[in-house]
Amino acid sequence: MIMVLYPLIYIVSASFSSTKSVISGEMWLWPIEPTLDGYKAVFEHHLIWSGFLNSLFYTVFGTLINVIMTLLAGYPLSRKDLYGKNFIMFLFVFTMFFSGGLIPTYILVKDLGLLDTRWAMLLPGALAVWNVIITRTFFQVTIPDELLEAAKIDGCSDFTFITKIVLPLSAPIIAVISLFYAVGHWNQFFQALIYLKDPQLFPLQLVLRDILVMNEISLEILPDVESAAALEGLREKLKYALVVVASVPLLIVYPFVQRHFVKGVMLGSLKG
């Protein structure tokens, strides 16, 4: 419990403390000599801003595509009367266990001309089979066959049934899979790493990687530094502040949506 919590608190405190106290180990739980320098540096960094907006874009539109695709696949597969259902399901599930691999996928994206466009972030992951399975299970459980039969007798076609009955009933599952997808998009960095070259398109995670992991902070973004030591110090602070800034959006939303996540995991286990 404390083991889980402590690193989180430490990061937040460190981001507010003065560099000296963090580096020397004086600061261990609560902030010492609180400052906002780290955050100032974060918000003055133009790539972080554009990264933030890009991530937002990818998350919103990516999730939209994902949800539509997943519903399109999930509903028909939940229907018992769909001829060839098992075969189609196999086509889906097989891709969970075997794939062409990194390079063939890369060549494909390149040949489609998606390289270095926003589409490269949206299309290759337009659908996750695991979420299709969850959705399918949800429909199987919540929409009884009798409902469909009754609607059919009343002269309802599949399309009308879907728009009038299935969709209104599927709000919970849409919430669940949107969350799964949105978190995935927000945290996605590898696709961006291999498909994107233009820094203007970079999502936040890729910008973060350059700063946190590769330690590449361009000097001009750090304001009025007198010495190399101060520069080093500001760098470290910037990192702590960045960690906080990057995680906060998810952690703020998280307590409200946690319920749905739990539900989603349970739906997954139902079939699994």
Binding site: L72, A73, D81, L82, I88, S99, G100, G101, P104, L108
Partner: peptide, 27 residues
């Protein structure tokens, strides 16, 4: 009888074919 359901499945299946099975062939 269930052609409408297949229509729904077209997009997801195209996706699978393009982004999952084509790379398998590309392998």
């Amino acid at each position: 009888q269930s052609w409408r359901l297949y229509v729904l499945l077209i997009l997801p299946l195209v996706y699978l074919a393009l982004f999952k099975y084509a790379p398998m062939f590309g392998a």
